[in-house]
Write a protein that binds this DNA or RNA. Sequence first.
DNA 1: CCATATTTGTCAAATGTTTGTCAAAGACAT
DNA 2: ATGTCTTTGACAAACATTTGACAAATATGG
Lengths: 211, 211
Amino acid sequence: MTSSNKPALPVIRRLPKYYRYLINMQQAGEKNVSSSELSRMMGTTASQVRQDFNCFGGFGQQGIGYKVDTLVTEIRHLLFGDGQPLPTILVGAGRLGTAVSQFLVRDANGYSLLAAFDNNPELVGKTLGGIPIRHVDELRSFCSQYHPQVAVLCLPREGATQLSSTLVEMGVKGFWNFSHYDLSVDYPQVMVENVHLGDSLMSLGYHMRNL
Amino acid sequence: MTSSNKPALPVIRRLPKYYRYLINMQQAGEKNVSSSELSRMMGTTASQVRQDFNCFGGFGQQGIGYKVDTLVTEIRHLLFGDGQPLPTILVGAGRLGTAVSQFLVRDANGYSLLAAFDNNPELVGKTLGGIPIRHVDELRSFCSQYHPQVAVLCLPREGATQLSSTLVEMGVKGFWNFSHYDLSVDYPQVMVENVHLGDSLMSLGYHMRNL
DNA sequence: CCATATTTGTCAAATGTTTGTCAAAGACAT
DNA sequence: ATGTCTTTGACAAACATTTGACAAATATGG
C-alpha cells in the first residue's frame, strides 16, 4: 500500500492490454508474475509495468512479484467498476452496426445492449441477435423510459452530430463512435471514444509506403 | 522549402485526421487555410499544426496560410504514395470480416481487395460484395500467384499467430489485424496495425466509471 | 510607398512519458 | 541464522512531444 498518483492517459490505454494478458495467465493457471515477465509479454519495460501498477496503488510483493488474481481483480474493477453492466443502445443497424453489435454481445464485457435503432424501414422490426431494431423516431421515448448510458454510433456522418446532441440531452453519458466523424460533445462528464477505421488503415498505408 | 525532420509517430497518426478535414474544406470550395483555423477544427494548437506540416517540408506561405489543394495533394501522397492501390486479401469472412471488407471496398482508398479466405465450408464459394470466398487451404497458392501486399485478419485469436507467419513467408508486408490478439511479427519491414475494439470499449468504460 | 495586420517557420521552454538505478523487503538454500 | 537471490517501489535522469514566442515574409489599405 503506497501512494497513488492520478493515472496518465497512456497508462489507462494500457490497462486493457494488461487485462488481456493477465486473463490468459489466469486461465493457464499461473499464480504469480513479475514485472519483467509481464514486460516481456507486453513488449515494454519492467520499469513501466511497475510504474503503471503503482498509479493505482502498488499491489506487488518484493521478492515474489504480483499475484495474478489480485491484478485481474483490481484491473477488472478499474475497467468495469462494480460489475453492473452499462445499459447501451446501438444507432445504425447496417453492416457495421450488425458486426459491432455482435462483438458487443458476444465478446465484450460490462455492457448490456438494450435496443438498436435505424431509419431504414426495411430493417425496423427485425432483430439483431435477439435485439429488436426500432425506428429512430422512437429514440427519445425509449431513452426516457430505459435511460441508456452508452450509445454506439454506426451511422453515416451526416446524422451523427445532431443525433449525439439529442442523446446527451436524453442522458447518454458515453459514446462509442464508429461514424466517419470526429465526435466531440461540449458537455463535460460525457465521454467519447472515436474509432476511426479509416485513419487506422491510412496509418498502415503510410508506414508501408514510407519505410 | 525548408528543412524537414523525420516525422514522429504522433504526427503520422494525425495525418489522416488532417486529410479528412482538408478534403471537407476542398469540397466546400475553400482555397486557403491558416494554421489557426485548422487548429480550431482539429481541436489542437496552431503551433502544432505548423510544426506537423513542417516535418514534411513546410508548404505554407507567410501572410496567406496554406493552400488547401497543396495540402491535400501532399498528404495524399504521403498516405497513398503514387496512388497504386495495395493488393489486399481478407482472412476470416465471418460477420466482422464481412463488415470490414465492406468498409475496405466502399469507404477506403488505396487498397484493392483481391480475395477473401475462410475455413468454414459453408462460406467457401460464396462472394463478399463481388469478392469470392476461398478456402484457406488455397492461401499459399493464391499468394504465390497474386502476391498480395496486405492481409486483413478477422479470425479468432487461435489461428492468427501461425497464419501470420505463413503470410509473411509468402511476402505479405502489412497486416490490419482485428483478431483478439496482439500481433507482432519479428520481421522488420513488416508493418502491423492492431485494431482492438475490445480495448477501445474498455477504455470508454474506465473513463465513464472513474470520472 | 509606407505602416499595419496576418501568418509562417523556427527555436527554446514547458510539459509529459519512459527508462535506468538503487535501497529495502521478502524468499530460499545452506 | 546468515548470506544470496529476486523483485518491488520510488526517484531521478533521459527522452519525447507540445506549446509559446518571435523574426521574417507577404498582403492590404491609405
